[in-house]
Design a binder for these strands. Structure first.
Lengths: 150, 150
DNA sequence: AATATAAAAGACTTATTTATCCTTTATATC
DNA sequence: GATATAAAGGATAAATAAGTCTTTTATATT
């Protein structure tokens, strides 16, 4: 449903937001290394995000990427839109040309409420809200430095 | 989540199953035309499905693709597996390296039950069950010959 | 002013998915 | 047996997604 690029983008933005209180900007290199994302690839994605006003950047020494106050008010859908340039929620899950409440595909009653919930969460919560939730829940954006039982 | 190929495959199998009572086999050409799927592409997919015993085929005049009694007992997951060769339900929706009930991503509580429901439906119901449901609900596998309000 | 740092920009490669085309094989019908 | 029909097989092309590399531009620090 989401491409690698937009998954990377979401993680990068949340990671940036998490670190923001330290007032230090992060380089693309650092972000890529922290999140195990190919550095050159995440650099391209970060570039797109800056253009779309999802994140901010500053060139030169001590420069890097950071979240401005305004940036924090964007939502996840803004990120996805900036990276993919299309609505990922449209279209029938099974690919039927006609799929609606009146003419539902066999999984319509499972998929429709799921999309609805997801869309609301991606639209109504700000990046700040997400970052707070992540901090509260102890969610790991990276696998570095944590012990996972496998 | 599903590729075009597996969406096409599911529609083709259900279409075949629907027409099965007429005891007439369907050509790949006919299936492609009925479902608005490129003929050469659906032909390749049908070939895979035959190999995986999801559908049956017969060469020559009056030949074509059809569903045997045994074929009807397969489920949707079998189709997806035959076409994609992997589990489409694995992995975190947001791409987090760690995502579980203990360490949930921000949408884990929305995604997990959705996947669960979908997996069950795709696993517990047979192709026959699906085809019956479609017939009962008047679901359209194709847009041909129906009037849709746009 | 020279230097080092880091993003911006653009060209390029690789992989995967989607789709097309052509030849071969099986088989029903005449 | 000749012919027509339809799937099987294989090779290739086009589109999209994923990832890499090199050069240019801005800027803080010395």
């Amino acid at each position: 449903m989401l491409t690698n690029a937009s998954k990377y983008a979401i993680r990068a933005v949340l990671h940036l937001t998490k670190k923001m209180d330290e007032a230090t900007k992060m380089s693309g290199k650092e972000i890529g290394s922290d999140l195990d994302i190919p550095e050159a690839f995440i650099a391209k994605i970060l570039q797109k995000l800056v253009k779309a006003n999802i994140i901010s950047s500053h060139k030169g020494p001590k420069g890097g990427f950071y979240m401005s106050k305004e940036n924090l008010n964007n939502n996840i859908n803004d990120i996805i839109w900036a990276v993919e340039g299309r609505d990922i929620f449209e279209g029938c899950f099974m690919g039927l040309p006609v799929c609606s409440d009146e003419n539902p595909c066999p999984v319509h009653h499972i998929v429709a409420p799921f999309k609805e919930k997801l869309y609301m969460k991606f639209n109504d919560l700000t990046i700040k809200d997400f970052a707070d939730e992540i901090k509260d829940n102890g969610t790991h954006l990276t696998i570095k430095g944590i012990n996972v039982k496998i």
